[in-house]
């Protein structure tokens, strides 16, 4: 059984969906954060990929591309001690509160 990301040749009759979604601002931001962290030696693409590949398989299939990136970047920088999960959760809550 190949792992969920190892996708070549998986049986599917689905045609390729060629519609494009409008890229969202947060998708641009997360992609840029990844680049900047990479330039600073805090996140290698190999680590980003390992993080993506570690997402539980059914979630991997359900999440969008940059959603997987977000989860992976977060887990890698938490693992490295750059940020803690607790402070990210706290910041989330603060931003939610501010927006109400």
């Amino acid at each position: 059984m190949p792992r969920v990301h190892d996708r070549g040749g998986w049986p599917t009759d689905e045609p390729i969906d060629r519609s494009e979604h409008q890229i969202m601002d947060w998708e641009l931001r997360v992609s840029a954060i990844r680049q900047v962290l990479g330039q600073k030696g805090l996140l290698r693409s190999d680590e980003l990929r390992r993080g993506i590949e570690s997402i539980e398989p059914s979630r991997y299939e359900a999440l969008g591309y940059y959603e997987r990136w977000t989860e992976s970047i977060e887990s890698i920088i938490v693992e490295k001690g750059v940020l803690t999960r607790k402070e990210i959760d706290q910041k989330m809550a603060d931003l939610e509160a501010q927006s109400r």
Partner: peptide, 9 residues
């Protein structure tokens, strides 16, 4: 078990 670049097929 970890991250590899050799696809299964």
């Amino acid at each position: 078990k970890g991250h590899v670049r050799t696809p299964w097929y």
